[in-house]
Every structure is written in C-alpha cells, then in structure tokens.
Computed example of a mutant assay.
Amino acid sequence: MIILLNISNEERIQAVRHFNRFITRHIGALREGLLHSPYSLTESRILFEIANNDNPTASNLTQQMGLDAGYLSRILAQFEEKGLLYKERSLKDARQRILKLTAEGVKAYAKLNERSNIEIAELLRELSDSEQQQLINAMKTVEGLISKNESFTFSGPYFLRQHEPGDMGWVVHKHGILYSQEYGWDESFEALVSQIVADFINNYNPKRERCWIAEMNGEIVGSIFVVEGSADTAKLRLLIVDPKARGVGLGSQLVEECINFSRRAGYKKLVLWTNSILKEARHIYQKKGFILVDEEKHHSFGQDLVGETWELLL
C-alpha cells in the first residue's frame, strides 16, 4: 500500500499511474479482445451504454464517455455493418437518432455482461467479507474524489455520421445562407453547391467517397465531403461549420476524417479548391499539412476573388 504523506507532486503522479497500470492489468483492459470476446474495451463499453441507457444517442455517448466524435462514429458504423446496431428516429425530436441493439447486438452484450460478472465474482471470491467491503469502500472513495471535480469534458460536444436522406438540402441551404451573410456571395454559389451534392448522390461510390454530417444536440452543424477525382487523387469539398459550433475543433476534425478516409481508400493525394478570403478554413488546411500549389484571380458569385488549389500527399 502506498501512503501519500510528505511526498513530492511527481511521486503522487507516479503513484496514480502505478494504480492505473495495476487496475487495467487486473480487469484485462489491455487484452486485444475484452473478456475473450472480439470487442475492445471501448467497443464493449459502448455496447453496455446502448443496452443500459434510455434512448441513447450518439451525441450523448460522445459526452458521457469522453470519446472523440470521429472515433465513436467509426465504431458505430462498424456495429451497423456487423448487424449489432440500428438507428431509429426519435418520436419526440425527429432530428435525434436513437441507437438500438439488434437481436444479434443484444446477444453480444449479454455474453459480455455474463463473462464480466463471472470474472468479478472470481476476483471477489479470493477475498473475505471484510476485505470485500474494504475494496468497495475504497472504490467509492476514489470515484467520489475524482467525480466531484468533473466539470470538464473530454471531447467535443458533437457527433459525426454519414449522410442520410434530407441532409443534402441542409448542405445547400447552409452554404447559400452563410456565404451570403458572411462574404456577400450571390445565389450562383448556392447553384454550384447544388450541382456538387447532386453529382455526389447520383455517382456515389461508398468505397471511394464519403460525406460526414456533424450533429450537436440533435441539430446538424457541419459537413464535409471526399469525392473521387482520379484513381490516385481524392477531392475534399464543401467544408462548412455553423457559427454556433465554431471554436470546438469541429472543422479540424472534419478535415482529419477526410484525410484518414482518403488514406484508407488508397488515394495518394488529397486536393481541394478554396478562396483566399476563407481564412479560417485555410488555417485548418495549413495545420493539416496541405500545401498551396496554385492561385488565380477570378470573378465568381458576384465577387472578385482569388481561387486557390491546395494539395496533401498521403
């Protein structure tokens, strides 16, 4: 047992890290599959939360579990592909999508839950009644001390998902409204966005192309697209973040999802076209490693602009 009396701050830090290593080893959190299952600790926890919460949504899980929105989105997509999960529109709020386990998902969760109970029972069996009570009291103390200061969050308050019917209307509308309000662009820009999303839907190749829709509290607040340019080149298109969702890293996360997807899809280069006036977006592209390779003056959308082409080698 470690007694923390007159020891340095560094020693206290190391004591907490030592406990973390101890407990993760004993609960098997470092195994490739938790409880001898095909699921990681995070995946198992997500199954648990969906099974044991009333009407859980992806945004709820993002905040409750402190998960990166993109990471959670990928796990949920994998669960859907494996037939463990489906989404159902909320009767109270049509913008919300409730996460539900399928019969196969319920079976997977039940097996994990049973194995977990057996492992904990075996651990407790090695302790006397008084030692078990000591352990429970100590765990309550740890939980109470840490949770009383949980006024912070570990992740952005948004959730990323793939596109669904009705989303493209939002993309076109939001681009038309925001670019008119913020940059004075006319309706010809809205027409361009309409053409881009129409081409995406009509020629959609899920293995090579993707749209991400960002939600916050059940409301759409952002989007981005990857479309196929050629066998080796992908195009990043239509990055937009609603003003109410700015400042939480959503734009950067959306671009990161595009980069990761393009690499997984086998592209060698990701390119985009933007305008010099869009400084916030340009800043994100620079931070992600894109390089400006061409610029040209043009008159479009009722404005004199400088178009820019940016590239990222993957």
Rank of each mutant, 00 (worst) to 15 (best):
D199T: 08
E88L: 09
L127V: 06
M65L: 11
N60A: 11
S223Q: 10
R95N: 15
G218F: 10
E187P: 15
L101S: 06
L292C: 11
E122D: 15
G144A: 08
N9G: 07
E32N: 08
L145V: 03
V171P: 08
G307M: 09
L67Q: 04
V106Q: 15
I46E: 09
V193Q: 03
Q181R: 04
R282F: 06
L47S: 10
P157A: 08
L112E: 07
L85C: 06
L41S: 10
V106N: 15
I27L: 07
D54C: 13
D186E: 09
A103V: 14
L254V: 04
I7H: 09
K269P: 03
G83D: 15
R264H: 04
A138E: 04
Q64K: 14
E280H: 07
E49R: 07
Q162H: 12
L238P: 03
G302I: 06
N275P: 04
Q195G: 14
A69R: 01
N53W: 05
E256W: 04
Q162E: 12
E80R: 15
S73H: 00
I50E: 03
D304N: 09
L145N: 11
S116H: 15
S73P: 02
T309R: 15
Y109I: 07
T309C: 10
F261L: 00
D167Q: 06
P38I: 03
Q14F: 10
V248R: 02
R95L: 03
L239E: 02
E126S: 13
E43I: 00
E308T: 08
H163T: 03
I240T: 03
Q96K: 15
E311Y: 11
K82A: 14
R17P: 02
L85E: 04
K92D: 14
G166L: 03
G70K: 00
H173N: 07
E308I: 14
F200L: 09
G28A: 05
S128E: 06
L4Q: 04
I98K: 04
L123Q: 14
S155N: 01
N205I: 12
P56T: 01
S130R: 13
R161C: 00
R74K: 10
A103T: 13
N275T: 13
E280K: 09
L305S: 07
T57K: 03
K92C: 13
N217A: 13
A234Y: 01
K207W: 12
N260D: 15
E10I: 14
M1E: 10
